Computed example of a mutant assay.
Amino acid sequence: MDPNELARIEVQRSARPVHGGLGWKYPGVEDFSSNLNPYGPPAQLAQYIDEARDRLIWYPDDHSTEFRNAICSRLGVAPDQVIAGAGSAELIRLFPETFLDRGDKVLMPRPTFAEYGYGCRLRGAEVIEVPLREDNDLRIDLTEMMSRLQGCKAAYICNPNNPTGRVLSRKEVLEFASECERRKALLFLDETLLELVPGSKDITCIAEVGSRDNIFLIRSLTKCFAMPGMRIGYGIGNDRIVRLMDSARLSWNLGQLEQHVGAKLLTDCYGHISKAAEMMGKERSRMAKEISATGLVNIREPDSFFFFGRCNGRTGLEMQEELLGQNVLVRDCASFGHPFEHYVRFSVKTPERNSSLIEAFRRAGGV
């Protein structure tokens, strides 16, 4: 028997997305390829894990009540508007599993986070991509997105967009959401990276989501608390969207450790995020100026806390390999397709670590 003959055609045709976050493969190398809080996890993390050890003999609460209540208290949303996920990745997959059928159309910019298109294609949906233009600073063109919405069941927006680092204002996002609603389309809004952006409180759409019929918004503790090895995420939408997704989610999707740690971090350690955002907001201009001066990569100061730039005279892979020789790791962006094989992405870290990256660029460029 050949299992290929039994698998759905979408699975047979799928190739897993390529991601960064490979710093674990390079001991002793400073990892700038991952967009994480540069201060690392809060000091209390080990204590919170220890507190939950005795709970491991029990099944976790299938409704993640402790964690969801902490989200509600922190963000001012109602419990029936919140769903917990094993990182944002589970919710990215759950959304198309809940709402998309074979032949449905979805709209998203390119490049953006690869898991969106992957999850939709696994459901048999047609992914319509709107290319971001280099002559528009690789910003999401919402006017162009709106012109392509007709017939789409859903649209995807990542704010800030990953990998480009560009941020849309709250007004822009909500205007696009209104147009989606007029066209009877859902909006999947990824704010996973937004909390580490200075001024994020004036950008987030969390307060508006509950009163909208078509927005589903996701966040994650992975980035803002620098703990990608523990998968904790959540989604916010109106009660009807959340109820449908909750019906389709995996049972016991968040373990005892994750529920307790997530609740404690949101309750007691939220200032850890704003402290990092403020520092990175100051550092990014210095990095843009000094790395640009090496002539190796064309970058502008990002709206967020990570850079995305075209390499001069090198591919992104060649630039990555050259900097690895200086014991720093950046993300080769070839996986995002042409012309991004010539791009690299790297994140803002602490001042001392940023100086090491700047010096590595200088040495690679002979400056």
Rank of each mutant, 00 (worst) to 15 (best):
E321F: 11
R310D: 11
F340D: 00
L317R: 15
G295S: 07
N327P: 11
S292G: 13
V328K: 02
G295K: 02
E321I: 12
P302V: 00
L323Y: 06
V330N: 00
Q320D: 08
S304H: 03
L329H: 06
P339V: 10
L296V: 04
S292M: 12
E322D: 13
L323R: 01
E341D: 14
P339N: 12
H342E: 15
Y343Q: 04
L296Q: 01
L317H: 13
Q326M: 12
T315L: 05
F336T: 05
S304Q: 02
D303I: 03
F336R: 00
I299A: 00
V344D: 03
E341N: 15
E318Q: 15
L317A: 15
G313M: 09
F305L: 10
E301Q: 11
R314T: 10
V330T: 03
G325W: 00
N327E: 15
S335H: 13
V330G: 01
Q326G: 09
N298A: 13
V328F: 03
C333Y: 06
S304P: 04
N327T: 14
G313V: 02
F336W: 13
V297S: 01
S335A: 15
T294P: 11
R331V: 11
L317T: 12
R331D: 11
R300V: 14
F305S: 07
G325M: 07
E322H: 09
P339H: 10
F308R: 05
C311Y: 00
G325Y: 03
H342G: 08
G316F: 05
L323C: 04
A334Q: 14
L296F: 02
I299R: 06
I299F: 09
F336N: 03
A334K: 14
N312T: 12
A334W: 13
C311I: 04
G337E: 06
N327W: 09
H342K: 11
I299Q: 06
G337V: 07
L296R: 01
I299Y: 10
E301K: 08
F336I: 08
H338R: 15
M319G: 03
E322P: 09
P302F: 01
N312A: 12
S335Q: 15
L329P: 01
L323I: 06
G316Q: 09
V297Q: 02
D332P: 03
G295W: 02
C311P: 03
G295M: 05
I291V: 10
P339R: 08
V328N: 04
I291R: 04
C333F: 10
F305C: 09
I299E: 07
F306G: 04
E318N: 08
T315R: 01
V297E: 05
S292V: 07
S292F: 10
T294L: 07
V330H: 03
L324A: 04
R310I: 08
V328R: 00
S304L: 05
C333P: 05
V297A: 03
F336S: 02
T315A: 03
E301R: 08
